[in-house]
């Protein structure tokens, strides 16, 4: 299994790069319109939708949105999580206690429900949804990082370095951060994949982003044509599944190695 993680990651990166390379820069308005409901063929490998737009291009644009949502949520969650985790692990006991109780509180918030409310109230911008997910899902990472920091703190070399006058923050930067990748990876995979799924879910409930094509919106738009234009929903479904499976597998494999 040791080669699975890089393989999955590589596959994922290749897939996304390929899709991004295909996606025209100008957003959905740049898609030329041809005949609607063309089945997959040489000119349009994924067929065309009800407005005559190329589905391959649409799926590629969806990749852009999904990646954006996943990355923004992930960046926010890891940033906050590492900050809180290191501060709790290295700081005084009172700070540790306060931060961990705050973490408990945030961990008990109904994340997806809040995302639904925000989307319903403020118009379902994909970035806004990513923001909500990032601001609420950092708790797992914070706990992991804190545990790792505490372990480090107990090591003899750490105490020795402290005694030699090395600041704890500098130590954390030198000795802790390089290791965090492996610790955080599986949780990061869950957050990344979860954000993509959450965005797709919101799009299904009618709370998608009107300015961005996303896989979830494409699936929702393909629903009325379930019977006679399978290509309108099958390709975005495949894209979502492939991405989240690859992310999960990569995370799973990374966990085994870590």
């Amino acid at each position: 299994m040791s080669r699975a993680a890089p393989a999955c990651l590589l596959g994922l990166v290749l897939l996304l790069v390929l899709l991004l390379a295909l996606a025209p820069a100008g957003g959905i308005q740049a898609l030329p319109m041809t005949r609607p409901f063309l089945p997959p063929g040489a000119a349009h490998p994924f067929g065309t939708d009800d407005l005559g737009r190329d589905m391959l291009m649409a799926v590629a644009q969806g990749a852009r949105t999904s990646l954006l949502v996943g990355l923004v949520a992930l960046a926010l969650a890891s940033g906050l999580g590492i900050l809180v985790g290191v501060a709790a692990g290295l700081g005084p006991v009172a700070l540790d206690e306060a931060l961990m109780r705050a973490t408990d509180v945030v961990a008990s918030l109904p994340t997806l429900l809040l995302a639904v409310l925000v989307a319903a109230f403020f118009g379902g911008s994909a970035l806004l949804v990513a923001l909500v997910l990032g601001l609420t899902r950092w708790t797992v990472i914070a706990r992991l990082v804190r545990a790792e920091t505490l372990t480090l703190r107990r090591l003899p070399f750490f105490r020795a370095a402290l005694a030699l006058g090395c600041g704890p923050w500098r130590l954390a930067r030198r000795h802790l951060l390089p290791q965090l990748g492996a610790v955080v990876a599986p949780a990061a995979g869950v957050i990344f994949g979860g954000a993509i799924l959450a965005e797709a879910t919101l799009a299904f409930v009618g709370l998608g982003d009107p300015e961005r094509t996303s896989w979830g919106r494409l699936i929702a738009a393909g629903y009325p044509f379930l019977d006679d234009a399978w290509w309108m929903w099958a390709f975005p479904v495949a894209a979502i599944c492939l991405t989240t499976v690859l992310v999960a597998l990569a995370g799973d494999a990374a966990a085994r190695e870590g």
Binding site: I28, Q29, A30, L31, M33, D50, L51, A120, G123, G124, G206, L207, G208, P210, E211, A221
Partner: peptide, 29 residues
């Protein structure tokens, strides 16, 4: 516009883009 009119927005965006007008859709209830 309402999210249920999204197809109109997408079509209008295509049509207006051809004369150089950008259209930014905002979903509201």
């Amino acid at each position: 516009l309402y999210a249920t009119f999204t197809r109109y927005a997408e079509l209008m965006r295509q049509q207006l883009a051809q004369v150089g007008i950008g259209l930014r859709a905002r979903f509201v209830d």
